[in-house]
Write a protein that binds this DNA or RNA. Structure first.
Lengths: 118, 118
DNA sequence: AATAGTAGTTACAAAATGGATAGTATTGTA
DNA sequence: TACAATACTATCCATTTTGTAACTACTATT
């Protein structure tokens, strides 16, 4: 199953790395929000509606993602103030992860449907 | 940021796929356990010690992973009964995801260390 | 009979996460 | 003045997740 040798040292490193990744983008919402933002910048209420997430949680998630350098927050000079959230260049480094998860989820769903079909 | 066009339809599909993936391997332990099992089959207590996870949680996680076809459980005919857990062929399809997360976590950690260094 | 090893399970507690509802602040409009 | 839009924040509560400690079941050994 391995392209690299997987001894107990590299295994420990791998576990740590995966934990680190989960710390940053784990949980129910962050990857979903990143996926939505791949579509382009969004305002607070747009994100809230598209992800079907309550403002309290959305606000918290966005703050954490901003702290980790994954999204930018821009206040715009509009009649009622609007705020735009967008992906940062750093978030591009997560592209591989998001794409791999997207592909896997899709093929897994197809597998389940096939299982049910027979 | 996109290799595929990312319109609102593909975006919804992508979100769904990512949710599906998180349903199966999300949470604090599953990906870590998969990583440990990449090292080879392990017994219950070995997994418990290596992952530093309590038997209650470990048991639950393993049951869920078995249900999803990601690990196999084999009872061995030994003096005190031992049980071996191993990856299934299906779990190989997660290789890309795990590797991408491993790589990202490692480069992220390096980035953080550099930030602190200056 | 008492003890030990392996693989769990049970009961309970603590912590993290998520959600619903309402409220604040600002500005503009009717 | 009242109401609406936007972006939150505050409060409270429910659910989920995680953890701890002790206990069971089976077998073998002393």
């Amino acid at each position: 199953m391995d392209s690299i040798v997987h001894n107990s040292v590299t295994c420990k490193k791998a576990r740590l790395a995966i934990r680190d990744t989960l710390d940053v983008i784990g949980g129910k919402w962050k990857m979903v929000l990143l996926t939505i933002l791949m579509d382009g910048k969004k305002r607070f209420l747009e994100l809230s509606r598209e992800a079907e997430i309550s403002p309290r949680i959305l606000s918290k998630e966005l703050q954490e993602m901003e702290l980790n350098g994954l999204v930018s927050r821009t206040v715009c000079n509009t009649k009622p103030v609007t705020v735009e959230y967008a992906l940062t260049p750093y978030s591009e480094t997560l592209k591989e992860v998001l794409e791999a998860m997207g592909r896997w989820g899709q093929q897994h769903r197809e597998r389940i449907i096939e299982e049910i079909a027979q």
